[in-house]
Every structure is written in structure tokens, then in C-alpha cells.
Amino acid sequence: MIQVHSWPTPNGHKVHVMLEECGLRLGRDWQVHAVNIGQGDQFQPEFLKISPNNKIPALVDPNGPDGKPISLFESGAILLYLAAKTGKFLPSSDRAKFKVLEWLMFQMGGVGPMLGQAHHFRIYAPEKIEYAVDRYTNEARRLYGVMNKQLENHKYIAGNQYTIADIAIFPWLRSWQNQGIDWADYPHLKQWFDAIAARPAVQRGVAVLADARKPLTDNKSRDILFGKTQYEKR
């Protein structure tokens, strides 16, 4: 059974959704192990063995490509692994595959980091720095605009097939309000978002561990996630 070490964040939900979309069911084909990042579980030696960057999610498959166990960190790598393992959500032709990969890289290099910074400076930073708030809010809006433009003539992010590019991007947009977004400005993206949100496997995926996550209000959790604890040598 596949073991997933995760927390209900956008990057965690990518993998939860992908597993469910691939026909793998929680409790039957895969298990989830909560890594409470607000309490510092990500710094435990056992977790660092499979995720040396101390980030969730991480996956352990006892039946890897050669029949031997394999562990993976980085959500994008995990999506690619599961697509290869199941033969789903990544086209076989080189042309179509590379279109998907470019949008997956768009998420990994742009959507995730920039929206994450928007969350941080708009919500979590101990002081509101106008320059930072404006910079990352504007970048969030720019990225939404890129995706909205792409979806003017495509059903899905990378074309007319539902792929790992959609699965990677969708969880990050669920916090659109925290990013300073008005959906009225992005009608094509909103239509796509609603269609993805309605998929049963997506609904199952984003429900995984959802009850475990609590609002970040205490100073200890803030220090673990954003302060000196994050940068200690291990």
C-alpha cells in the first residue's frame, strides 16, 4: 500500500487528488500519515529520511518501478511518478506531453511560490509591508491572467485533456480570496475552477486531513513555519 506523508495544504492536496483520480482509494490502496507542519513534525528524523527538504508531501511506494520500494519528495515529482505508474493524466505523445510539462513547471516555478508569498505577506507576516503585499498580490493577479488567457480556447490548462497540470494548479486557487483575487476578472479560469471542483475525486482528495488543519494563530507555530526553527541546521 502506498504511504503518503502529508498535510492539508495545496501541495499535499495535489497528491491526494492525483491518487483518487487515478482510481486509488484512501484506506484501500493508500494510507495518509499526518505531518503537522505547525507542530514541527516535518523536522523529525524519520520524515527527513524521505523528505530531506523538510517539506510535505512525501510518498513511499513499496512496489516501485523495479518491484522495490521507492520514496519521493516534491509534489511535482510525485505527480509524474503516479502518472507513469498508472498510465493516467499525462499524454503519451511527446508533443502533448511537453505541453503538460510546461504548465506543470509553470505551477511549480510560478503559481506555487508566488501565491505562497501572497498568502504570507497578506495574512501571516507579523507586520504588513505595503511593498510586499502589492508586489505579490499583483503577481498573483498576473498569473491568474495568464491562466485565464490560456483557457479562452482550451478546456483544460494544457489543452483539451484533463492532466496533472490541472491537478497541480487547482489546489492553489482554492485560496483565491487570500490572494486578493476577484473572480469576475477571470471568467474562463473561474469556469475551469468550478468544473474541477465538481469532480468527485477532487472532492475526496481535498477532504483528506481537512479537519486536522487549524488556523495559524499561536506564536510557536509561526516560529516553526516562518521563524528561526525553519532555518536550524539539521
Rank of each mutant, 00 (worst) to 15 (best):
Y162S: 13
A140D: 04
V17D: 12
L48H: 02
H13M: 12
A34H: 14
I224R: 01
K99W: 03
H120C: 02
G109Y: 05
E20M: 05
W176K: 11
K220F: 10
Q31E: 14
T163D: 01
P69G: 04
K214E: 15
M1W: 08
V146R: 02
Q230R: 15
Q161V: 07
V111T: 12
A165S: 03
P69T: 06
L189E: 09
P91D: 02
P57L: 04
F193Y: 15
V100R: 04
H188V: 00
L216H: 04
T137Y: 07
E152H: 06
R95H: 14
I164F: 10
Y156S: 01
N53L: 01
A168F: 02
E102K: 15
D94F: 15
V35S: 12
R141Y: 09
Q179E: 09
K220A: 15
L216S: 06
N11I: 00
G116H: 04
S51I: 10
R25V: 06
R204V: 01
L19Q: 08
A96N: 04
K228E: 14
G109C: 09
G145R: 09
P10A: 02
A165V: 01
V133W: 00
F89E: 05
N138R: 01
E232R: 08
A83M: 08
V206Y: 12
W192A: 14
K68E: 12
R122S: 14
S51H: 09
Y81N: 10
P126E: 11
L104W: 04
A184T: 10
S221E: 07
K233P: 02
D134W: 00
Y131N: 10
W103K: 08
L209D: 10
Q191K: 15
V4M: 12
K220R: 14
V60Y: 01
L173I: 13
N153D: 14
I181Q: 02
A195W: 09
F73A: 13
L24T: 08
K128Y: 01
G12D: 05
S51R: 06
M108K: 12
V202I: 06
L189K: 10
Q3K: 14
S92W: 07
G110F: 03
Y231V: 11
N54Q: 08
A96D: 10
H5P: 11
H16I: 03
I56G: 11
K49V: 03
G38R: 15
H13W: 13
D211Y: 00
R204D: 07
G38P: 01
D134I: 00
D182E: 01
E20T: 11
H154D: 12
K190N: 15
S93I: 11
I157N: 05
Q44S: 14
I37K: 04
F170I: 04
G23I: 05
R222C: 05
Y81C: 10
P8R: 03
I2S: 09
G38T: 15
P126A: 09
N153S: 15
A198H: 03
Q179S: 08
S6H: 09
P62S: 03
H16Q: 11
M114R: 01
K228H: 11
A207L: 03
H188W: 01
F73K: 04
E102G: 09
D194G: 13
H120M: 02
M108S: 13
F106Y: 08
A83K: 13
D166A: 06
L90N: 05
G67I: 00
M1V: 10
Q179W: 05
A212V: 09
Q107Y: 03
